[in-house]
Design a protein around this nucleic acid. Structure first.
Lengths: 182, 182
DNA sequence: TTAAAGTTTCAGTAATTTCTGAAACTTTAA
DNA sequence: TTAAAGTTTCAGAAATTACTGAAACTTTAA
């Protein structure tokens, strides 16, 4: 598959950003390419287009599947696997967000949970324990919030985002209403 | 500085998670240690406690300063620099969040902005351009939303988080009010 | 002004992560 | 059942990133 310069620069950019987004260079390029491709792409095409080894593509596919970012498709009379993004851009963003939350917060949350269980043994631990508690509570709130947002309909979420800082005002409104009911 | 086993395991955990959070192992350990330390810590103490070289500590301090996660303190009659976290846990989390948003989204946003300016040159680019537009709009909304949330008082933000999926209901309420004003 | 204490820098080394290419394995059409 | 086409795996090579230790530099108390 031949890419126009503009597409190529987008795909390469995805490669460079890859590690910041949580994967490696070639995995970044792969998802970038799949997103801008109108038709599903086979593993061989990925390798040829990106100039990377077939083995590497295979690893990358596994990785993207573990992130739930791609889906396999079959073309009748063709036994190759063809890949395409698993859903809309919004869906992909949601998945990356969720998956990263799991990888970046859950392990710490569980360490802190068990660490907080027992009593601090001395002055040093007392202070530390306090801080750990704060981190724990923060992570827990964020986790809870994230999961609740995930369960909202995308439509509502988009409304909420558009509202921006306006939520502040809505919150005030709510308070007023509740108070006037007293 | 001698750490109790519990503190040590927390600090080492921060090291392991470091790369997921956006820095490297030793930088992770350093901020972990600073957070659980009641008193400011000197560069030498960091090196000794973590068993890493003095040079490495120096690099790490620079890195943490670029994230605005630590502050320097001086003790009268002592010319060493002492370091401590720059603010509460909440402040630190906010900074990491903001800094990562910058590093992970801004470069892509600016690439997409310029890429979208000119007309698609062919069928392939037409489809790709559409997708890039979707990504652009998503990133832009998130960026805007994030900056607005940052400007809300921490108190309000915490309320919002506690509200969780409840925001959905508040949004509905708002709609009803607006409609009844028509 | 000096020298001791403290700090920074950086070239080279070590550790880790990513990638290749070839071999093993699987599938299916004939 | 065979062999050609397609796919996966994995040991080692390459590239990247992190770290050390020593030397250069800076500060300040005497």
């Amino acid at each position: 598959m031949l890419l126009s310069p503009k597409l190529e620069s987008f795909v390469m950019h995805c490669g460079e950003m890859g590690s910041r987004w949580g994967f490696n260079r070639t995995v970044g390029q792969m998802i970038g390419l799949l997103i801008v491709s109108e038709n599903p792409v086979s593993a061989n095409e990925l390798a040829e287009t990106l100039n990377i080894s077939r083995g590497n593509v295979s690893m990358g596919i596994k990785e993207l599947q573990s992130w739930r970012l791609i889906q396999v498709q079959h073309i009748p009379g063709d036994r190759k696997d063809y890949y395409s993004p698993a859903g809309s851009i919004w869906d992909l963003a949601t998945r990356v967000f969720e998956e990263r939350r799991k990888r970046e917060m859950d392990p710490t949350l569980s360490l802190l949970r068990s660490s907080i269980l027992d009593q601090p043994a001395n002055q040093q631990e007392e202070y530390a324990q306090e801080k750990m508690h704060e981190i724990h509570d923060l992570l827990e709130s964020v986790t809870l919030w994230a999961s609740e947002l995930q369960n909202m309909s995308p439509e509502k979420l988009k409304t909420l985002m558009k509202l921006g800082a306006g939520v502040g005002k809505v919150l005030d409104m709510k308070d007023k209403l509740l108070n006037s009911n007293k």
